[in-house]
Design a protein around this nucleic acid. Structure first.
Lengths: 177, 177
DNA sequence: CAAGTTGTGGATTATTTGTTTCAGAAGTGC
DNA sequence: GCACTTCTGAAACAAATAATCCACAACTTG
């Protein structure tokens, strides 16, 4: 997961993967099948681990709090020096070679999944009266996800934690609802 | 430019490039040198053409108007069916293979350039009293650029023009200044 | 038309990629 | 201690890559 996170799908060479895992090339193939299968496992691990907060955040008592937690944890993740820079779902999507189309689709689906989860949370907030019904819940979700992915690219560019924090502060101060 | 835009740096094979340009492989090498040199020419063309509006927008009479024009033209560009999806500077940057480091740096520099231009515009707006001095001009520029790159990823994901438009509408309605 | 420049196609090189194979070492369970 | 599974290391493979070379055609220019 960490290697794919750092180098993207095509950027990660089998040598990088085996040496990072501390196992032999032969073993890797008998255990995981091939590179693509391994990558899908890595995405799953990424979703269950480092970015689980995206799916957890919707359990906050208010939609506003959800967004606050979401963006704050994104800053923490992106600025943690123990992690590769940026976001696996963006870093990996570059897989542009026509053959890697399925990789790209898996990552887009991954992001759409997060978007849908957020949309549901906003719809609930509208039922509860926290958010005006003038908005479409899906639009709000897409807006927040745009901020989130933009933040990911900024992190990959080498933005400092303070800079990421300021971006989030500005975004939160001017939340549309 | 169009091929790199669509497939990224490593995703673009020499065959794609020669057939898109309608010239021979030999000719390409004698004219441009190698793939990397060609890519730098493509970036320049991208900056002078499709995304020139980023550097033009700062000439709008107000900072608010600058941001409005910037984001609006981004939507137009990303939704134009004649263009590849997404943004060359993002699509290409994920070229992560260690050898392509110089490519990544060139694209980061490209984006930082846009950020600096925007920062200058915001600083001027502060001098003129349009924007409160409570902000740092650089922070605002980074915030807008975060939105812009996020928009680029949304476009690459296949968002429709209406969806992109709505994101921008929300962002503009809740501009921090 | 003739001389010289420029582009062409095809073959070729060296390198790198993901993947497979296989004999043998290391470990495990009875 | 012996059968059996699991892992290892190294070699090898086919495919694809960027890049080079060269003889020949096409064109431009005087």
């Amino acid at each position: 997961m960490r290697v794919f996170w750092e180098k993207g799908y095509e950027g990660a060479r089998m040598n990088d993967l085996t040496s990072a895992m501390g196992i032999n090339r032969s073993s890797l193939y008998t255990i995981f099948g091939d590179k693509e299968a391994l990558f899908h496992r890595a995405i799953q691990r990424y979703k269950d681990g480092p970015v689980a907060f995206v799916w957890d955040s919707v359990r906050e008592p208010t939609a506003r709090r959800t967004v606050e937690v979401l963006l704050q944890k994104a800053v923490d993740l992106l600025a943690d020096p123990r992690n590769p820079r940026g976001c696996l779902s963006i870093q990996g999507a570059l897989a542009a070679g026509t053959e890697a189309e399925s990789i790209k689709e898996a990552l887009i689906a991954f992001r759409k999944n997060g978007e849908a989860t957020l949309k549901k949370r906003f719809a609930q907030a509208q039922k509860e009266g926290e958010i005006s019904r003038d908005f479409h819940a899906g639009d709000l979700a897409r807006y927040i996800l745009t901020l989130l992915t933009g933040l990911g690219v900024q992190g990959a560019n080498g933005a400092t934690k303070a800079q990421l924090q300021t971006i989030v502060d500005i975004a939160l101060r001017s939340l549309p609802f």
